[in-house]
Design a protein around this nucleic acid. Structure first.
Length: 529
RNA sequence: GAGGGUGUAGCUCAGUCGGUAGAGCAACGGACUUUUAAUCCGUUGGUCCUGGGUUCGAGUCCCAGCACCCUCACCA
């Protein structure tokens, strides 16, 4: 023991306190400082990332006394006895590259003058062998002050233990940062949903697969950008503070600008500003950003979430369908794992091309009623106990569709050609004005993407907005007339295809997470009491 | 917003009929130089979510509140 460490007094009242994990950690921090080591550490260069150590495993070999080099046996073989193999190939010595690893202590197995540590960085985990004889008394005394969760580093030779585990045989230890809070259960981790979200740092640090999920999210988002960039789209940043929140049917968050003494709302969609840019001649634009909707919270809804919207001048909804498929397929390729994926116990096959079916076909298939047969549709609605009085037939039809068809759409499937009256921002088919050129992409009943051949007739657009706003009082009104947008359309927006894609839902699907709160780093929560 | 569930040690969880608080891990002391959630011996640790009520007595029953989870609604 070093001379700076205090002698614990046998009957000291402080003795009971050191049984409090937090106090014990601070006491060890004090002892580390007493060794002349900064308990909050400093720079550590030339690290070998732990994921890379796995690649370096092939460089570990056995050198016989006569200098001949022997490949190590396969450690995948469960019957392998490495100790026996060594004696059969001995005398000799295991050789391997020297590495410098730094990370968090996840597990510690002390065994007298020997300590095994499991260290973790964001690329993986690796075992560290700390022997008193190998690291020296000074470093070994330091290692005895390590706690689970501390950040430390080890430099040493990469090799195999008797059980074959890839291990860094430490020659030098470095202390980096003391964790002053006690860690969660070393096996179960932090399972309390509330705490996982409230203390995402602990969730990331101690729960298996959490970092990987969020790294996958980043890969997906990067891939989406890459796909769009490769197709000549230009990423832009629209305002998040709007004077009129438009582009979607949702209630906005209200806020206020002090200097201008002006009410503002947070954006609920990206659409109307991107279209203004198309009027200005930016022919392929997209924004991948946060929108805010003042609505209920559920496993599929967070008040702020990430949307992709993109617009292609001189395209239509079919152009967008091909693009959507490409975006998703390339995102899957970016995170790996193949086109066939598991979600909530279901098998989903994203092998392109995705199935395409019209709204009317699916309606008839699921209900046995032709969507054109008005009387039958109304009768069906009554059967389903849906409100029919004073409602447009398309609205009734769509309620039936949502109830009977959407939830059962396994997908991925593009539902195309919607009834026009429920799509106010959509261009209608030339030969069938009652049908809108629109698709929605469904997977397991979830709406992932929504695209239109965009409406660019300013007068018709205004009329449709007004119809949409009719009968809504101030409180209920989810959209307000955006006169500047109508004026923009009068400056001529090219015919275009437009796409909206819910990034969070795509990430949920591709990472297999059932709750949006598992793929948003910091979902909204009430403050801690 | 409606309905259901959960809340107990730092973490993960038991707690029977209402009888005065338990385990594993972590922590603390000890043994151990090839462990794998190491093992073994010993020790400590509680605002039973909060506030009322019923009762001789409440972690347990009742009421109210708070937080989280699930289902539904709004929404994507």
């Amino acid at each position: 023991m070093n001379q700076h460490a205090p002698e614990p007094a046998a009957d000291s009242p402080a003795d009971a306190d050191t049984k409090d994990p937090r106090i014990a950690r601070r006491e060890k921090m004090r002892q580390i400082a007493a060794l002349g080591i900064d308990p909050f550490g400093s720079r550590y260069d030339n690290r070998t990332m732990m994921g890379h150590c796995k690649d370096l495993a092939s460089e570990v070999y056995w050198e016989k006394e006569d200098g001949t080099r022997v490949e190590l046996p396969s450690f995948d073989d469960p019957d392998l006895d490495y100790r026996q193999w060594k004696s059969e190939n001995g005398p000799g010595a295991e050789k391997g590259p020297t590495v410098r690893v730094a990370g968090r202590i996840m597990l510690s197995r002390g065994q007298g003058k020997l300590i095994f540590l499991t260290l973790k960085d964001w690329t993986g985990e690796i075992q560290i062998f700390v022997g008193k004889k190998q690291v020296g008394a000074e470093d070994f005394d330091l290692a005895k002050l390590f706690d689970l969760g501390d950040l430390v580093a080890a430099e040493g030779r990469l090799g195999r233990t008797l059980t074959g585990e890839l291990t860094v045989f430490a020659e030098k230890l470095t202390f980096h940062t003391k964790m002053l809070e006690p860690p969660p259960d070393k096996h179960a981790g932090l399972t309390n949903q509330d705490l996982r979200q409230r203390m995402r740092y602990a969730d990331l640090a101690f729960n298996e697969g959490v970092v990987e999920t969020f790294l996958d999210r980043t890969k997906i988002v990067k891939s989406v950008r890459k796909t769009l960039d490769s197709q000549g789209f230009c990423e832009v940043e629209g305002p998040t503070l709007h004077t009129v929140a438009g582009g979607a049917a949702a209630r906005p968050f209200a806020t206020h600008h002090n200097a201008l003494d002006m009410p503002l709302t947070m954006r609920i969609a990206l659409e109307l500003h991107l279209k203004r840019l198309m009027v200005g001649g930016m022919e392929r634009v997209y924004e991948l950003g946060r929108v805010y909707r003042n609505e209920g919270i559920s496993p599929k809804h967070n008040p702020e979430f990430t949307m992709l919207e993109c617009y292609q001048a001189y395209g239509d909804y079919h152009s967008m369908m091909d693009l959507t498929e490409q975006i998703i397929v390339e995102a899957i390729e970016a995170i790996g794992g193949g086109y066939v994926r598991e979600y909530d116990g279901h098998r989903v096959d994203f092998t392109p091309p995705f199935k395409r079916a019209t709204y009317a076909e699916l309606f008839e298939e699921a209900t046995g009623v032709s969507s054109d047969d008005e009387a039958a549709v109304v009768q069906l609605a009554k059967q389903l106990k849906l409100k029919t009085e004073d409602r447009h037939l398309d609205v009734i039809r769509n309620e039936i569709f949502e109830e009977k068809v959407e939830d059962s759409l396994h997908g991925p499937i593009f539902v195309i050609d919607y009834p026009a009256s429920i799509c106010p921002l959509t261009k209608r088919k030339k030969d069938k004005p009652e049908i809108a050129e629109r698709f929605e992409l469904f997977v397991l009943g979830m709406e992932i993407a929504n695209a239109y051949t965009e409406l660019n007739d300013p007068d018709l657009q205004q009329e449709l907005f007004e119809t949409q706003l009719e009968g809504l009082d101030e409180e209920e009104s989810m959209a307000k007339m955006d006169n500047d947008f109508i004026r923009a359309l009068r400056y001529a927006m090219p015919p275009a295809g437009g796409l909206g894609l819910g990034i969070d839902r795509l990430v949920m699907l591709l990472t297999g997470k059932k709750s949006i709160r598992d793929i948003i780093l910091f979902p909204l929560q009430r403050p801690e009491s």
